[in-house]
């Protein structure tokens, strides 16, 4: 077994706890993620996918349980320490890009480096290198509103990668992209995962996108209901298995 970079133990999330409207969105979730894994999280709408990813990545605080990232208990950290921890260890990519609309592409990409107090000259070098990798050099001094959807998502990816995070957290990263941009993004994730050993945890509801992962977790009604390891399966075989499980789950949910 490889090095564990992310672990959740007995994770529970209750919204509006201690009120009449209390709603338990996650029930006793346990998961371990090894270094260099590419994990997919699938499930129907309202199953708790985003709640799950937010609670294991410091974006939200679980009601009960423990979360360890790179061996550190993040729930025991102060709000300020979590801030530092995020830009040093995690890179976030969201469906709606989450870019600062008032700031240039350059300033968006440089955000984690700025927080880390990196020297402006080094920031410039790294941002320009990253922009070149992402084919964004001509857009650096524009506002996000002046860029296409694909360019905006590439900016979000550049920002997530600029500080060389050990884990990338992606919540439906292809949700606002066309098929070509989606495939490019997933190939990039795969490359980072295989060549640089970056761990990726990605939420998706699309079986084809999920087929890029190395392990897939299915969530339903706040529980992890099943898991598939890609292992030695080829991509088609893995995809077929994902489709089979998700369609049987869909049928099951229709019957219930």
């Amino acid at each position: 077994m490889g090095e564990i970079v992310l672990e959740a133990r007995h994770l529970k999330k209750i919204y509006n706890a201690n009120s009449l409207n209390a709603y338990e969105a996650l029930h006793d979730i346990n998961i371990q993620v090894e270094k260099g894994e590419f994990i997919g999280v699938m499930g129907p709408s309202g199953s708790g996918k985003s709640t799950f990813i937010n609670n294991i990545s410091t974006i939200d605080t679980p009601t009960e349980g423990k979360v360890f990232i790179n061996g550190k208990n993040v729930l025991a950290m102060s709000a300020n320490d979590i801030g530092h921890f995020r830009y040093q260890n995690l890179g976030f990519i969201f469906q709606d890009f989450n870019l600062l609309d008032t700031h240039t592409i350059y300033e968006n990409i440089a955000l984690p480096l700025s927080l880390a107090g990196v020297d402006p000259a080094e920031i410039e070098t790294r941002v320009k290198e990253m922009a070149q990798k992402m084919d964004m050099t001509d857009q650096l001094y524009k506002l996000p509103s002046e860029c296409s959807g694909g360019q905006r998502q590439r900016t979000a990816i550049a920002r997530a990668l600029i500080n060389n995070p050990s884990i990338i957290i992606a919540d439906e990263p292809t949700g606002n992209l066309d098929s070509q941009n989606s495939e490019e993004l997933l190939e990039l994730f795969q490359k980072l995962n295989r060549e640089d050993g970056v761990t990726v945890v990605m939420v998706t509801h699309d079986a084809f996108i999920a087929s890029y992962t190395s392990r897939l977790i299915f969530i339903r009604d706040g529980n992890i209901t099943s898991e598939i390891q890609k292992g030695d399966m080829d991509e088609d075989e893995y995809f077929q298995k994902i489709v089979a499980i998700s369609s049987s789950r869909k049928r099951r949910s229709r019957i219930s």
Binding site: L100, V118, E124
Partner: peptide, 15 residues
Amino acid sequence: RKRKMHKPVVAYANG
């Protein structure tokens, strides 16, 4: 960009 990016409060308030 050239002088203040290492100070996040200054850099992003300026934006």
